[in-house]
């Protein structure tokens, strides 16, 4: 029962640098209601002492908003990739095991390097080719139903949960992952963005593109924003195949 918990125990996988060996340390902090994993790591900062009494460097991790919008604090908590800020202690089995998301290179402790995701956004041209930020004329009217779909996808915070959970992202395969792929779908929905639809589909044809998706459906399970990733990946797959056929016949 939550009321009886006096302390919270953590086993944290640490790593001093990108090339050094990982090791674990245990910490115990006082329990309080509504505590989450980020707030717990903050407690450890105030008293960075392990359960066996060793004074250590505070744990390094990334966080900004603490309300599940920025995507920074993604880590593996009790084996599952998720945002640490909304991982409530009351809902977690103890000892709580924190690990870095090793699909990405580790910088230090729980802090990882996700720059590959931002590079993939360049590859799929995840933007609208506006002429400039100046005024032109009225923006086009949009179908409110399509706009609702766009709004759902546009919640993607590039946190990387879907890549961490995907069996096809990693050294064994070069799949760019669900998140950046589905961003291509998002911009293909926009009345101006769709002018460059073919370019985005072409970008998803090559190495690491949509054909590398093994349809394991893990991504949709872990998406903290409940984006229907597999639905959009399937539609994208159809669009890419259509484009491929078109390319053959137009040659």
């Amino acid at each position: 029962m939550a009321e009886q918990k006096k302390t919270v125990k953590f086993i944290i996988e640490r790593q001093d640098s990108p090339t050094s060996k990982p090791y674990t340390q245990e910490f115990e902090i006082p329990y309080r209601p509504a505590l989450n994993v980020v707030a717990s790591l903050m407690e450890i900062q105030k008293n960075p002492v392990t359960t066996d009494g060793k004074k250590v460097a505070p744990v390094v991790w990334e966080c900004n908003c603490l309300e599940k919008v920025c995507g920074a604090c993604m880590m593996v908590i009790n084996g599952k990739a998720r945002q640490a800020c909304c991982a409530l202690i009351d809902e977690l089995e103890q000892p709580i095991r924190l690990q870095p998301a090793r699909t990405f290179p580790v910088i230090r402790d729980l802090h990882i390097d996700r720059s590959v995701m931002f590079e993939s956004l360049k590859r799929v041209q995840a933007w609208v080719e506006v002429d400039g930020s100046w005024e032109v004329k009225d923006a086009p009217i949009q179908n409110p139903y399509t706009a609702t779909t766009a709004y759902e996808i546009s919640h993607c915070m590039t946190c990387g949960c879907c890549l961490e959970a995907c069996p096809n992202v990693g050294p064994q395969s070069d799949f760019i992952g669900a998140s950046p792929s589905v961003q291509a779908y998002l911009f293909n929905l926009h009345p101006l963005g769709k002018f460059d639809k073919e370019k985005r589909l072409e970008a998803l044809m090559g190495k690491g593109g949509i054909t590398s998706c093994g349809n394991s459906q893990n991504c949709v399970e872990v998406c903290p924003k409940n984006i229907k990733l597999t639905t959009y990946l399937a539609q994208l797959n159809r669009d890419v195949n259509k484009q491929a056929l078109k390319n053959i016949f137009n040659k």
Partner: peptide, 21 residues
Amino acid sequence: PKLIKMFDRMGVPFTRTPEGV
């Protein structure tokens, strides 16, 4: 109002009325 139109062109998924504005 000009800034809003710019954001709209850039693809911000603003909430819309049934007629799409």
